[in-house]
C-alpha cells in the first residue's frame, strides 16, 4: 500500500525527442556493380536449369543415336545436315524449294487469315449465344457436337467445297479454332454481373453502346482465354492440313522431307514449329494482358 509513486519518465523524454536534431537521410544507392550482379543472379536462376536439362537431353540423344544403324540421326548430325537451312532461311530457288522463313511465313499467313475470321465470327456467335437463351438452346447442342470433330476430318469436305488447297486450309483453321472462342465468349457474356447491366439500364445505353462499353470489356478476360486456346488449335491444324494440301508451308516442308528421307530436316522443322507455336501463344496472352488491364474486380 505504501509504495512510492514512481516518477513517470515520459515528461522528460518527450522534449528530448522534439529537440532531436533532424538528420538528413540520404538514400543509399547500391553501387552499380552490385545491381548488375543481382540482375545476373536472378537471370541465372531462371536460365540455368532449363539449359542444364536441354544439355542433358541432347547428350542422351547423342549417345542413343550415334550407334551405327540407328533409325534417327544424333543432334550433331542434325546440325551438320541442316546447317544450310539454319544459316540461310531466306533462299528462294523457285517452286517449293525455299528457305524455312518462307515456309513459316506462308503457314503464318494462312493462320492469320483463318484465325482472324474465326475470332470475329467466334466472338459474334459467342455474344449471341451468351445473350439470348433461345440462341443458346438452339445452337449449343450443335456446337458441342461439331467441336469434337478433328481438324483433318473437315479437310476433304472443304476441298470438295472450295476445289482449292488454299481456301480449304484456311477453312480448316477457322473451323478448328472457332469453338473455344464461341464457348468462352458465351460464358463471359453470361457472367456479366447484373450490376453492370443495371448501370447500363439506368444510363440508357442502346444495344450497340452496351455491346461496346459493357459487354466486350466485361467479358474480355473470358474472350482472351478462348482466343488463346484458339491460336494453339489453329497452329495444330495448319501443320496437319498443309501436309495434305501441299505447296509452300512448314507442314508440307515436313512431309516433303519425310518423302525424301531428310530426317534431320524434319527435326529442325519441328523445332521451329514448336518455337512459333510458343510465340503465338505468348503474343495472344500478352495482348490479353494489355486489353484486360484494370478489369480485375475491385
Amino acid at each position: 500500500m505504501n509504495m512510492p509513486a514512481t516518477k513517470i519518465e515520459v515528461e522528460t523524454a518527450a522534449p528530448a525527442s522534439i529537440a532531436a536534431p533532424v538528420v538528413a537521410m540520404t538514400p543509399k544507392r547500391p553501387p552499380r556493380a552490385e545491381t548488375y550482379a543481382r540482375i545476373a543472379r536472378e537471370t541465372a536462376v531462371r536460365v540455368i536449369p532449363p539449359l542444364v536439362v536441354i544439355a542433358l537431353l541432347l547428350l542422351v540423344w547423342e549417345l542413343v543415336c550415334r550407334r551405327a544403324g540407328s533409325a534417327l540421326p544424333p543432334p550433331s548430325k542434325v546440325f551438320k545436315d541442316t546447317k544450310e537451312l539454319i544459316f540461310d532461311p531466306f533462299f528462294d530457288h523457285g517452286g517449293i524449294d525455299k528457305g524455312l522463313f518462307w515456309h513459316l511465313s506462308a503457314s503464318l499467313q494462312r493462320v492469320a487469315l483463318g484465325y482472324s475470321l474465326s475470332a470475329i465470327a467466334g466472338i459474334a456467335l459467342g455474344v449471341l449465344v451468351g445473350q439470348s437463351v433461345w440462341a443458346m438452346r438452339g445452337l449449343d447442342p450443335l456446337f458441342q457436337v461439331l467441336r469434337t470433330i478433328p481438324p483433318l476430318a473437315w479437310l476433304p469436305l472443304s476441298l470438295a467445297a472450295f476445289r482449292d488447297g488454299q481456301p480449304s486450309a484456311i477453312f480448316v483453321i477457322f473451323i478448328t479454332s472457332i469453338w473455344p472462342i464461341i464457348i468462352n465468349t458465351a460464358v463471359g457474356i453470361r457472367n456479366i454481373p447484373q450490376d453492370y447491366r443495371n448501370v447500363a439500364a439506368v444510363v440508357q445505353l442502346n444495344p450497340l453502346e452496351f455491346f461496346a462499353k459493357i459487354m466486350i470489356p466485361a467479358a474480355a478476360p473470358y474472350i482472351f482465354t478462348g482466343l488463346r486456346i484458339g491460336i494453339g488449335l489453329s497452329w495444330l491444324a495448319i501443320i496437319a492440313a498443309e501436309m495434305l494440301i501441299g505447296g509452300v508451308g512448314i507442314g508440307f516442308f515436313i512431309w516433303d522431307a519425310w518423302n525424301s528421307s531428310h530426317i534431320s530436316e524434319i527435326i529442325l522443322a519441328l523445332f521451329y514449329v514448336g518455337i512459333v507455336g510458343f510465340v503465338l501463344d505468348r503474343v495472344i496472352a500478352g495482348l490479353g494482358k494489355i486489353v484486360t488491364r484494370g478489369t480485375a474486380q475491385g
Binding site: V199, V202, Q204, I214, P217, A218, G294, A296, Q297
Partner: peptide, 27 residues
C-alpha cells in the same frame, strides 16, 4: 429505367475498366 431516377448502388457498381472520370462521363 432512366437517368431521371439515377441509382447509387449498394456495392458502388463502378465499371472496373474505366477510370473515375470515365465512369462519371458514361452517364
Amino acid at each position: 429505367p432512366g437517368p431521371d431516377r439515377a441509382v447509387v448502388f449498394q456495392n458502388h457498381s463502378l465499371l472496373p475498366w474505366l477510370t473515375v472520370y470515365e465512369n462519371v462521363k458514361l452517364g
